[in-house]
């Protein structure tokens, strides 16, 4: 078990794309806090910020691209063609000949992803919230540990969501594009909440309620319930992905 997790960690951290996700995901949020500092100061002075305890936690959102990239490529790297000489050849062949028990393999892969993303989230949250304290400490209360934990959990579950979807699609481009667009350009899930309250239970929307208090959420959901709902989404998608992975020919 330990050796399999070690191998999966090496595989993931040996990919240049993984480092793009790690660096982008860790640095974007602190950079935004820094860039927004003058604007934030003015907003605080003018009293237009309703709940300053949300401040750093809200900025964390832009870093989610990191967990999304990591979750997708942990799987998609197995399916990309390894060379032009053999278009059908993929890393998955090496992976499954080394660890043929697919359930054990998925457990190790999932564990490696969770370790990497949780560490990244902890670093990004510390940097973002620390910077917020340094810049606006007089007006912003120190973040509650439970909310920080909620944010780290949100990052980890987001990575697992991306991972599970890619396990189903076996291709990284479509899920990564959709997830990144949904979290940056236009949030389709957010638009859906304007149409139906049910959309408040979509994983990305509900998950944010674990640590963000004041936003125009149409339905208020308690942090614990929010965490459970998002976990349920991830669990169901992971279960579907795992069953397909188990059944399909490699």
């Amino acid at each position: 078990m330990v050796s399999r997790v070690r191998a999966e960690l090496r595989k993931l951290l040996g990919l240049p794309t993984a480092w793009v996700g790690l660096v982008l995901g860790t640095l974007t949020a602190p950079a935004i806090v820094l860039l927004n500092a003058p604007y934030t100061r003015r907003a605080i002075a003018a009293g237009t910020l309703t709940d300053t305890s949300d401040l750093g936690l809200r900025d964390l959102g832009v870093g989610l691209i990191g967990p999304m990239v990591l979750g997708v490529i942990a799987v998609s790297s197995e399916y990309t063609s390894t060379s032009q000489h053999a278009p059908g050849a993929r890393q998955l062949t090496a992976t499954l000949t080394a660890v043929p028990d697919r359930l054990r393999l998925l457990v190790a892969k999932t564990a490696a992803l969770v370790l990497v993303v949780a560490a990244q989230a902890a670093v990004a949250a510390t940097a973002t919230l620390g910077l917020t304290q340094v810049l606006h400490g007089d007006h912003v209360p120190a973040p509650a540990p439970a909310r920080v934990a909620g944010a780290i959990l949100y990052w980890t579950l987001t990575a697992l969501l991306a991972y599970a979807i890619t396990l189903i699609t076996r291709n990284g481009i479509v899920p990564l594009t959709l997830l990144v667009i949904n979290s940056t350009v236009v949030s389709v899930s957010y638009l859906l909440t304007k149409i139906t309250d049910l959309a408040s239970y979509l994983p990305d929307i509900v998950g944010a309620q674990m640590f963000i208090r004041d936003a125009d959420f149409p339905v208020e959901i308690a942090p614990l319930t929010a965490g459970l709902v998002m976990t349920a989404w991830v669990a169901v998608l992971l279960a579907i992905g795992a069953v397909l992975f188990q059944r399909r020919d490699a």
Binding site: G14, L15, T80, A94, T97
Partner: peptide, 16 residues
């Protein structure tokens, strides 16, 4: 086992 290709991801060195 040796099948088609090396099984190594393009971005990885042989040793990695």
């Amino acid at each position: 086992a040796l099948l088609d290709g090396s099984g190594a991801h393009r971005a990885r060195t042989a040793r990695a």
